[in-house]
Amino acid sequence: MTRDPLETLRDRRWDGGAHVHELEERLMLAHARKHLITFTKTKALLVAVALLLFGGFAGAGTAHLFHSFTVEETPLDDGRSHVKVKDADGKTVFDGVLEEDEALFAIDGDEGGIAHVKPVEDEK
């Protein structure tokens, strides 16, 4: 052992091998999907405005329910939340973790539409 125990670890270097490329592929796929699955609060405001405008054009200011989802939000120890969303048929359409300041995310519809989902506390 050298004078400083940590000295031993200085020679430890990471060689990722094939992992470098595998992870890069995963990241690039995730990058392509990123804008469809996460929105920060700032963006949530913009999306809310966009939906309001759309509602105004479509139905003279009335609200429309396009789909209904069941959202289960489980707080994690580190401040993030695990969110699981099921559609009306009970099929899981989103299962992931939202960061502390993420309040809205979107789900791709089968027919090319996008549903914006904001988890809210059930008042019942």
């Binding site: 670890l9 430890r12 270097r13 990471w14 990722g16 470098v20 992870l23 890069e24 690039m28 990058h31």
Partner: peptide, 22 residues
Amino acid sequence: DREAFAELYRRHYDAIGTYLYR
């Protein structure tokens, strides 16, 4: 930009990997 993020990843992969391995 996907390629810019890929560049960020490639530039820092080894350093962050070494830190985590240590």
